Computed example of a mutant assay.
Amino acid sequence: MTKAFVVGHPIKHSRSPLIHGHWLKAYGLDGSYERIDVAPVDFGEFLSGFHAQGYAGGNVTLPHKEMAFLGVARRTQRAQRVGAVNTLWVEDGVLWGDNTDALGFIGNLDATLGIGWEQDVETALVLGAGGAARAVVAGLQDRPLKRIFVANRTGLKAEDLARDLRPGSSVPIETAAWEALGRVVPHAQLIVNTTSLGMAGQPPLAIDLSRAPRNAVVADIVYVPLETPLLAAAAAQNLRTVDGLGMLLHQAVPGFRRWFGVTPEVTPDLRALILADLEAST
């Protein structure tokens, strides 16, 4: 039996076991996927020992993604660009790390908007400069956009992100002052919130979408609530919206394929399963 895991601290609210458990059952595979709570002080020991405990690999969530990046022996190019690891496996005795958040974000856009959506997007505006923002920007760099703006309440973090991700990309990355978002919004055909603003228990994201292009898409990686105040404001302006649940589902695909040898599909049934769990927990 193949065993995999998600490791974090705390971890009890992770929905990854529900996602992978659904796929294991759907494809009739002999495997397991479990939550493992590991405190930061013990993570290095866990990282070096999980394979000996019979695990093929697993997912890494907060607060361990940066520690996993530093602790693996080899990293994919994606993980190197993002500076964080969320997927682990052992290959020929070597511990590898990948970051599938970029694939999850882009996969969600492809599934929601349709293949070729980027043909209508010249400029993207990414709000935030943390790990999730780095993954989103890295994913967008693989599409033929003209430019990407990054805005963060702490401007220096936006500058750091732009500096780190500019090399090797044909898509220019520029920074925008948080106070000057009103000057960027009219030029952005894609607006992405990667901050915690709008999440349950957090203040809403204050941004005026009334001057956004009529064909603009507004995406939020937050999925609790599923319709954030930002997405509600976008819908009120008749703009297309993309919620954050799809990113969670699509980022899980590469790891499952790596550990269990089957490429799973993100289906309406899976989405309905996770939505039901979200509703039951609120």
Rank of each mutant, 00 (worst) to 15 (best):
G54N: 02
A56P: 02
D37R: 00
R81H: 10
G83C: 07
G83T: 08
V72T: 15
V41H: 12
G54P: 01
L62G: 01
F46T: 12
G57S: 05
A79D: 08
Q53T: 01
L62N: 07
W23N: 09
R81Q: 14
G49D: 05
E34P: 00
G31M: 03
E66H: 08
Y33T: 09
W23P: 13
R78E: 06
Q77S: 12
F50P: 04
Q77D: 14
M67Q: 15
A56K: 09
H64K: 01
H51E: 06
G54T: 02
F69V: 10
N59H: 12
A68W: 00
S32Q: 09
V60N: 02
G28Q: 10
T76I: 07
V85Y: 02
F46I: 10
L29N: 03
A73P: 08
F43S: 04
F50I: 03
P40I: 06
V60Q: 01
V38P: 00
T76K: 07
A68L: 07
G83F: 05
W23I: 01
P63T: 07
N59I: 06
V72P: 14
F69E: 13
L62E: 12
G49M: 02
N59T: 12
N59F: 11
G44M: 09
L24F: 02
P63K: 12
Y55R: 10
R81F: 03
H51L: 01
A79K: 09
D42S: 14
V85N: 04
R78Y: 03
G57A: 04
I36M: 15
G57T: 00
A84W: 14
G31Y: 08
T61N: 00
N59C: 14
I36F: 07
R74F: 00
G54M: 01
V85A: 12
M67G: 02
D42Y: 05
Q53A: 08
P63Y: 06
A68H: 12
P63V: 04
A68M: 13
I36G: 04
R74T: 04
N59V: 11
A52P: 05
A52V: 02
H51F: 05
Q80A: 09
A39N: 10
Q80H: 06
A52R: 10
S32A: 15
L70P: 02
M67H: 15
A68V: 08
M67T: 15
G58I: 09
A79I: 10
G57I: 02
R74C: 11
L47E: 11
A52T: 08
V60I: 15
S48P: 01
S48N: 06
G49H: 05
R78H: 00
V38Y: 01
A26I: 07
A52I: 02
P63F: 09
T76N: 05
N59K: 12
K25A: 14
H64Y: 01
R74L: 04
D30I: 04
L70K: 12
